[in-house]
Amino acid sequence: MTLKDSVAKKEVSEEFDLFGEYTIEQKLDKRYGDEKLLMFKTGPNMYGYQRFHKEQLTVEKVIASDKTLKLGIFPVAPIHTPERVGDYVMLKLITPLVLEPQSRVVAYLTMPVEIGVVRSDTGEVNMIDVFSVGLQYYAIYGTPENGLLCRYHLTRISAEMPKAAMYQEAVVKVHFMNNTRKVMTVNRVVLPVAGTNFYVRGAEAYYNDLDMVLSDRLSSTVAGVRFSSVKSGASSEWALSEALLKQQFKFIMEWGL
């Protein structure tokens, strides 16, 4: 199922504006939380784009296009607002997860998303605008000397798929594997998110499944975080957004779990 099909069906409630690709014939307005987007044709090859935050104009752009303009509105990696300072996300567990030695657990977390407005009619994806619905927080994973700046997000851990905050969160399924011979406590999951994309269904977002493998090194226990080798939990009704290119990654959490 392509993204276009999923949007065309509009199976999810019409009360909320959805993620998807839109063709701007004359005028189109969309609302995502406190952000209102207005896209309109101003001339034969000219389009206007405006974004209002709480009804106050915050972004205005003119887009030149010699054909009918198509804009995609998708969840993107939460690293752009208010300014890009890092490529990582730290998912801080409100309740730490205690893992038995040599055990495996599958659980759901939520992760923050930003909303990107991308132009997809040119053959390549160009980001026109990006914004966050709600507040953003940042934190250091590690120390100020050697650490990483991460987008910070507090999340509950749940056995069932949780209801994520619309336009603000995506669901992520994590396969925790404790390969050590000790009882381990996981307080956070840190991963690079630049260049990765989300699955979407209506106004909901879902991130790639992750593997978090705890293992012993010489003097400490580290965790390797990567895209899961298990097939994505997103069912066939979820479509992969075309906002950004998908990349593989593997990140070693060496400054604490």
């Binding site: 607002t81 208010p82 730290m90 507040l135 953003q136 250091i140 994973y141 910070y152």
Partner: peptide, 10 residues
């Protein structure tokens, strides 16, 4: 707390 660039950790 309302300023995104004020880090939560530390």
């Amino acid at each position: 707390y309302e300023l995104p660039m004020v880090l939560v950790e530390p």
